[in-house]
């Protein structure tokens, strides 16, 4: 009897020790965009509910600040870096020739696709003003439609909002002989705001955007056809597919191997993420609720990410 008591106490003590070892606080920045938030929320719930961690979320713009925070050890991991939109990857991430102060923690799973988009009311329907606008070359036939006060006789295309994204919109227009200027709004928020307002007024516009993104949930957009990506002809072509990745502290794999491995194993498909984005941004539902719903319905999927799980 005494022996049994002793054993139980030992087992309890071991259990406590084990959970204390597994637990801890991980700090992660909250992404600026719904997709990134969804990805991080899924990881957070797994870490908190299944692996004994507490995740502290910090709101700050996703950019070099986050990388510096990771390098200094203030942040442990972050979700969804899109390589095309991050001009600092060459400085921090080893896979792009950086100093390795930020480690890649596996791909997110989604595949990003960029293009130029026009609103559907512009190209479809009985009184659509540009029914034959299908490819980027067709833009030249509708220069007058897209002309503005400041564009100096050319059409106006809303290019990549930030020059650091290296979209090369202006060069593409030149090389393909499109008589358009590429306006650069400076910030992503401004880009979406202008699109949203122009859409509400049913004005013509052609703008850069990518998928998966909440803007497609809010506005009905059609992608223009661009020449397929070709490294040698760039930027006279469309974009390469974008493979976003999760990232974090390089020594996370040593200090918290299971958490790091789970993040590396995790994978969300375009469809899965887009469905959640739609529910959050169009139906206006609570993000936690939507993510929990997905987790309840796909338990076998995410359980397989946890290292040492039996599935």
């Amino acid at each position: 009897m005494k022996m049994l008591n002793f054993l139980t106490a030992g087992a309890v003590a071991l259990g406590i020790a084990a959970s204390a070892q597994a637990g801890g606080v991980l700090t992660a920045p909250e992404a600026d965009w719904t997709g990134g938030q969804v990805t991080c929320r899924v990881l957070q719930f797994i870490l908190e509910d299944e692996m004994g961690y507490k995740v502290k979320r910090i709101t700050m713009p996703s950019g070099p600040g986050v990388r510096e925070g990771i390098r200094a050890g203030d942040l442990d991991f972050a979700c969804e870096s899109w390589p095309s939109y991050d001009s600092t990857k060459e400085k921090y991430v080893k896979e792009w020739g950086g100093d390795g102060s930020v480690a890649k923690l596996g791909d997110v799973g989604i595949i990003g696709a960029s293009s130029y988009y026009v609103p559907r009311y512009l190209v479809e329907g009985a009184d659509a003003p540009a029914p034959d606008l299908k490819t980027i070359a067709d833009l030249n036939r509708y220069v007058d439609l897209f002309k503005t006060l400041e564009s100096g006789g050319k059409g106006r295309l809303l290019g990549c909002p930030a020059a650091s994204w290296e979209c090369e919109d202006t060069k593409r227009m030149e090389m393909l002989g499109i008589n358009f200027i590429a306006a650069e709004l400076g910030a992503e928020t401004a880009h979406w705001a202008e699109m949203k307002a122009a859409f509400a007024r049913k004005e013509p516009f052609v703008a850069y955007a990518w998928e998966p993104h909440w803007i497609h949930a809010a506005l009905d957009l059609v992608a223009l056809e661009l020449p397929a990506f070709d490294k040698d002809k760039w930027p006279a072509t469309g974009w390469a597919k974008d493979v976003p990745y999760n990232y974090g502290r390089p020594d996370l794999i040593k200090t918290d191997p299971e958490a790091a491995q789970m993040i590396i194993n995790s994978s969300l498909s375009n469809n899965e993420q887009a469905a959640m984005i739609l529910a959050i941004d169009v139906d206006g539902r609570d993000m936690d609720e939507v993510v929990r719903e997905w987790m309840a319905a796909n338990e076998s999927v995410w359980r397989a990410w946890i290292p040492g799980s039996v599935n």
Partner: peptide, 8 residues
């Protein structure tokens, strides 16, 4: 921005 559009 929504009223005046994105320009200088």
């Amino acid at each position: 921005l929504m009223f005046f559009g994105g320009n200088p």
